[in-house]
Design a binder for these strands. Structure first.
Lengths: 108, 108
DNA sequence: AATCTATTTGGCTATTTTGCCAAATAGTCA
DNA sequence: TGACTATTTGGCAAAATAGCCAAATAGATT
């Protein structure tokens, strides 16, 4: 793997890694339609506020979210909504996996 | 996060997590056009063969690759090529991040 | 200023991941 | 069968991650 290429893959991997957590996927989904403040999102996922804040920081760090403070609340929104388009393909990966699992049980 | 929903996010996260590593992204890219045997892929990424084998196992486990043995070689191919479509969006996330970095240096 | 609310940060532990080496396995060929 | 090739597996150490609690910060309200 030549180095400039490696860097490209590393950069891409950082973005994917930021997405690759159930809670963070849930957060991205929640932000699909509207911006939300941290307390809203905390109520949604039911974890400690500090944990939610850190998940949001990961998504922001990857460039996936924008945030701004209004009053004493911080509102987050999706920066690049195309990431929501990943889910369709991921579901087909999962469906293919499920089909393969059936093959094992019921080979042709 | 209600539980059936959680499970869906967890399943999706497992697929993304499998992709979220520079070497595994490189492997997926290499398999974009043709199937390849493990030794080929090892030459490409330049890591220990056992390491490459484990990365491939991760991708297979997530349902991203299919493999079959012919002779004493194992050939891998992309099971659901739509994942390659992620890269376009990821690049725009990275571009947005770069733009934001410039804003910091050079605010309006 | 004192207080209250919303969010972030620091610190800790438990768990997971990565990559190497060495050893095991599976298939081929003499 | 024995030797050789391709790949996988087991085991280990180093690094990264996730979650909680407690403490710090920033803004609003009295």
């Amino acid at each position: 793997m030549p180095t400039p290429t490696t860097d490209r893959y590393a950069a891409r991997a950082r973005v994917l890694k930021a997405m690759a957590h159930p809670v963070r996927l849930c957060l991205l989904d929640a932000l699909a339609k509207d911006e939300r403040c941290v307390a809203d999102l905390q109520a949604l996922v039911g974890l400690d506020m500090s944990t939610v804040s850190k998940h949001l920081a990961v998504l922001r760090g990857a460039g996936l979210l924008d945030a701004d403070k209004r009053g004493n609340q911080v509102f987050h929104r999706l920066r690049t909504p195309c990431v929501l388009g990943f889910f369709g393909c991921i579901e087909s990966v999962l469906a293919a996996g499920a089909a393969r699992a059936l093959d094992v049980l019921e080979p042709r």
